[in-house]
Simulated scan of single mutants.
Amino acid sequence: MQLNVTSLSGLPDAARQIITYAGENKIFVFYGDMGAGKTTLIKELAAALGVTEAVTSPTFSIVNEYVIPAGKAYHFDFYRLKKQSEALDMGYEEYFYSGNYCFIEWPEKIPDLLPEHYTRIAITALNDNHRQLEVENI
């Protein structure tokens, strides 16, 4: 599925479409350059799931946890990892296989640890406000 988002006001609709498209998948991996809008999109996905608290990038904590009506949502930012074993040390399996939503930024840092099934989102910045989203269930 391809979505074109031309302004921030289009993100809530895009988030709802992505969640619907993902179906049973609760693991979402995000690819895109620094500043492409990964965290901004994750904020909208979390809001669509019912998160009412502020969603922020877990750059230094690696993972943030949010409460949703159906359980929890976890937001990971693996940018700072030097090697995959650091994700092992933090117990990533408990999160990824919990049955809760997981939003993973910089999954290229943990390529061998990704679950078998997930929704892949590639974000391309076409200009300051326009983003192209390629969404695929794996």
Rank of each mutant, 00 (worst) to 15 (best):
T40H: 01
E116M: 11
R80C: 11
Y95H: 07
D112K: 15
G37V: 00
Y74I: 01
L81Q: 08
I104F: 02
A47C: 09
G91S: 08
A47R: 15
N127S: 13
H130G: 05
D112H: 15
E94P: 01
F76Y: 01
A87K: 02
L3T: 12
I42Y: 05
I18C: 06
L41C: 05
L3I: 15
D13G: 10
I19G: 03
D128F: 02
Y74P: 01
Q132Y: 10
Y21N: 01
P12Q: 12
F96R: 00
Y101R: 06
A15T: 01
F103P: 00
Q17Y: 10
V63Q: 04
S57P: 05
T59W: 07
S85H: 14
K72N: 09
L126C: 11
K82I: 09
C102N: 12
E116G: 09
A87P: 00
M1D: 01
A87I: 04
Y97V: 08
D89M: 11
R16H: 13
L49N: 03
E105L: 07
Y74A: 03
V29Q: 04
E94N: 14
Y79L: 10
E134L: 12
A14M: 09
A14L: 06
T40C: 03
A48M: 07
P111M: 11
P69C: 02
G99H: 09
V135Y: 04
L113S: 07
V63H: 02
F96G: 02
P58T: 11
V5A: 07
S7I: 06
L3H: 09
Y21T: 02
T124K: 14
R120T: 08
N137V: 11
N64I: 07
E108P: 05
D112M: 12
E108R: 13
A47Y: 10
Y97G: 12
I62N: 01
L41N: 04
V29M: 02
E44W: 05
A54R: 14
I123P: 00
R80A: 09
N127G: 07
G71A: 11
V63T: 03
I27D: 01
S85V: 14
L41V: 08
N4L: 14
S9D: 12
Y92W: 15
T119M: 04
A73T: 04
T39Q: 02
S9Y: 00
G71T: 10
L133N: 09
G35T: 11
K83W: 06
L41D: 00
I110V: 15
I27V: 15
T119A: 06
A22P: 00
W106A: 09
T119Q: 04
F78K: 01
G32H: 03
S57E: 05
E86W: 10
A14R: 00
N129C: 03
G23W: 15
Q2W: 10
E24P: 12
A22C: 07
A47S: 14
E136Y: 11
G10Y: 00
